[in-house]
C-alpha cells in the first residue's frame, strides 16, 4: 500500500484515529466530577436549609443519582454532564441558603432595632432590655 494513495483502508484508519483523539480530548475524569458533586451536596446537606434552597439541594441530589445511573450504564458523557450540573446545583443551593439567611437576619435585626428605638422613645430614660 502506498502511503500517499487514497484508499478506503486509509480513510477508515484516519477516521478511527480522529475519533480516538477526539474522544481523548473530550474525555473528562468522571470520578473526580462525581466526587466534586458529592462533596458539594454534602456541604449543602449540613446546612439547615428551607424553601427554595432545599428544592435546589434536592435537585442536586437527583442529578447526582442520574449521574451515577449513567456511569453504571457506561454512559460516561452523560454521567459527567449530570455530575457537573449536580455540583453547580449544590453550590447554588448553598448560595441561596446564605442569601436567604442574610435577608432573614437583616429583617430580624431591622425589626429588633426598630423596637429598641421605640422603647427608647416610650421610655426615654428607661432601660431597653
Amino acid at each position: 500500500m502506498r502511503l500517499m494513495t487514497l484508499s478506503w483502508t486509509k480513510i477508515h484508519l484516519a477516521s478511527g484515529l480522529l475519533a480516538f483523539s477526539t474522544g481523548l480530548l473530550a474525555a473528562e475524569p468522571l470520578d473526580g466530577r462525581m466526587a466534586d458533586a458529592q462533596a458539594a451536596i454534602e456541604r449543602a446537606a449540613q446546612l439547615p436549609m428551607r424553601g427554595n434552597s432545599v428544592e435546589m439541594r434536592n435537585e442536586a441530589q437527583r442529578l447526582l443519582a442520574l449521574a451515577r445511573e449513567s456511569a453504571l450504564a457506561r454512559k460516561g458523557k452523560d454521567a459527567i454532564l449530570h455530575a457537573n450540573e449536580a455540583g453547580a446545583a449544590a453550590e447554588l443551593a448553598v448560595a441561596r441558603y446564605r442569601y436567604n439567611l442574610l435577608r432573614y437576619e437583616i429583617e430580624n435585626k431591622t425589626s429588633r432595632n426598630t423596637q429598641l428605638r421605640r422603647r427608647m422613645l416610650v421610655l426615654p430614660e428607661g432601660n431597653t432590655r
Partner: peptide, 11 residues
C-alpha cells in the same frame, strides 16, 4: 446555575 450562584454570592 453558575450565573445565579455568582449573583447571589455577590449580592
Amino acid at each position: 446555575l453558575r450565573v445565579e450562584t455568582a449573583r447571589l454570592m455577590a449580592e
